[in-house]
Each structure stands twice: as C-alpha cells, then as structure tokens.
C-alpha cells in the first residue's frame, strides 16, 4: 500500500466513523427523545413572543396569585407572569450554553493544536492551562462577571474562560496521540507540513472528542449561568432567567414552592438532555479522555 493510499484510506475511514455515528444516533430511541426535547427548548426560545406574554411587566396588585387565564403558572412576588418568564428564561440558558460551547471549541482547538505541535510553545501553554484549572471555575466566573459591566456578553465570556483550558488539555492529548500514528509520520516524510498537515490529518482526528467535550461544556455552562443569576451576578434581575427566578422564589419558598419548581425542573431537564446527548455521542465516537465539571 502506498503512502497515498494509506493517507486516503485514513480519510475514508474517518468519514465512515462520522456517518456510522449518525446511524447509531438514529437507531437509539433515548437519543431521539433527548433530541426532541432539546428541539422543543430551542423552539420555545425562538418563538417565545408567540407562546407567552410579557415577561417583565410588573403588576403589584396581582402579586403571588395562582394560575389564571392570563398567567398559566401564576404570578411572582412582583406580579410578573411566571410562565412567560420561564419561556423567555430558556433564551438565556440556550444562548449562554451554545455560545460558551462555540467559544471554548474555537479557542480550545486552536490553542490545543498549537500546544500539541510545538514543543516549547506547548510546554508554556500547558503551564498556563494548569494554572487556570487551579482556580475554581465558578469563582473565576463570578469574580469576572462581577468586575465587568453587567450583561449577557460578560456572562458568556466569564463562563468561557474556565472552559477553554479543559478543551485545550483534551485537544492536545489527542494531537500528541495522532502524531504517533504511522500515517502522520508518512505524511511528514513526503513533505506535508505546517497547515496542510494540521488541516488534513490532525484536525479531523480531534473532531469527535471535541464535539463530545463541547456538549459537556454546553451543559456545564447552562448550570454556571444559572448559578450566576441565582447569586445575582451578571445580568440584571429583570432579564428573565431560570436561576434568577429561583433566586426570586427563595423568600416565598415555604408558601409558594411551585415558583421554585418550574424553573428548577426546566433547568435540570435541559441540562440532563444535553448531558445524555453528550454521553451518547461519546459512546458513538468513543473518544479518548473527557475532562468535565459541573456544579
């Protein structure tokens, strides 16, 4: 088998693995259910104005009233529509979850590949990663969100910063593994180097593990953003978020536990669905090591 055959065979095998993974997902009913639930959450976030009323309108006369035709899940301590806030709250969770996953992926893959390819640069990058991972992620996020101007962008950056080192560590370990493979040595020996080498051989191999890690990063970001809102850091309290709704419900917990239940169940369900999808993806692609964390 010539080097060219070997190289192209490898690429073919890789494509096969991805489509096999897709087949596995389709054949697995639990996965389909989770996809369905996630889709419902996404639709809920996108079409929130069509589904629910005004989530920020305050109506003190109606405070803490039960379910009614205008407010399906009753009203909170400021007379705001709980159902509307719950529906709009999905926007915050999904936006933060997907954005953090995307940012962690882009920066994590770029830095991770560099750290895996360059000896000196890699050593420096890994010391930085070790140091960042020594700072508890939640504390870093809370402190950053509190120091910067309040807003959803601040929250996204605050949560992304501790997620990036996890991705870097994963990508680097994959790159170091791939570099040991005979076909990479072969590719280097026929003069492939630099960007083409990374693009054709290194990057495709990181795809599976990165996708799984991105899913876990999304789940953990949704939890962290809820923690930030729950502690009252980051976005302003009137922006509807599930963590914020739970913080509001704290004082009325004994008389109105349902105010805590709605956002708590939605939040847990969304994170559960994303985590299960990550696990299924991980089983289907069988990547090496995953570093994960959640609260």
């Amino acid at each position: 088998m010539s080097v060219y055959d070997q190289v192209s065979a490898t690429r073919g095998r890789h494509g096969g693995r991805i489509s096999a993974a897709a087949g596995y997902l389709a054949a697995n009913p639990a996965t389909a259910i989770c996809f369905g639930v996630l889709l419902i959450f996404v639709l809920m976030a996108v079409f929130a104005p069509l589904i629910a009323g005004d989530p920020v309108k305050i109506d003190p006369a109606e405070r803490l009233t039960g379910p009614s035709a205008s407010a399906h899940w009753g009203r909170d301590h400021l007379g705001r529509d709980v159902f509307a806030r719950a529906v709009y709250g999905s926007r915050m969770s999904l936006l933060v979850g997907f954005s953090v996953a995307a940012i962690a992926t882009v920066f994590g893959v770029a830095i991770g590949i560099y750290a895996g390819m360059s000896r000196v640069g890699g050593a420096i990058a890994m010391r930085l990663v070790d140091a960042m991972m020594a700072i508890p992620a939640i504390l870093l996020a809370i402190a950053f969100a509190a120091l910067m101007d309040a807003g959803i962008l601040t929250v996204i950056i605050a949560i992304s910063i501790p997620e990036i080192p996890r991705m870097v560590r994963l990508v680097r370990s994959v790159v170091l593994g791939v570099r040991q493979q005979p076909y990479v040595a072969a590719a280097i020996s026929i003069g492939t180097g630099g960007l083409p080498l990374v693009w054709r051989h290194i990057l495709p191999n990181t795809l599976g593990p990165v996708l799984v890690q991105a899913t876990y990063a999304c789940a953990s970001a949704i939890i962290t953003s809820a923690v930030l809102s729950f502690l009252g850091v980051g976005t302003s309290p009137e922006v509807p978020s599930w963590g914020g709704m739970m913080a509001d419900a704290r004082s009325f917990f004994r008389i109105h536990p349902e105010l805590m239940v709605y956002p708590g169940v939605l939040l847990s369900l969304l994170v559960l669905v994303v985590n299960v999808l990550g696990d299924r993806l991980s089983d289907a692609l069988d990547p090496r090591k995953m570093v994960r964390g959640s609260v």
């Binding site: 923690v227 847990s268 985590n275 994960r292 959640s294």
Partner: peptide, 10 residues
C-alpha cells in the same frame, strides 16, 4: 447522569 445534571441548588 441525573446527579450531575441537576444543579446543586435545585
């Protein structure tokens, strides 16, 4: 899976 999907404050 349930354990690390449900946030600690929930």
């Amino acid at each position: 899976v349930l354990g690390f999907s449900v946030p600690v404050f929930v």
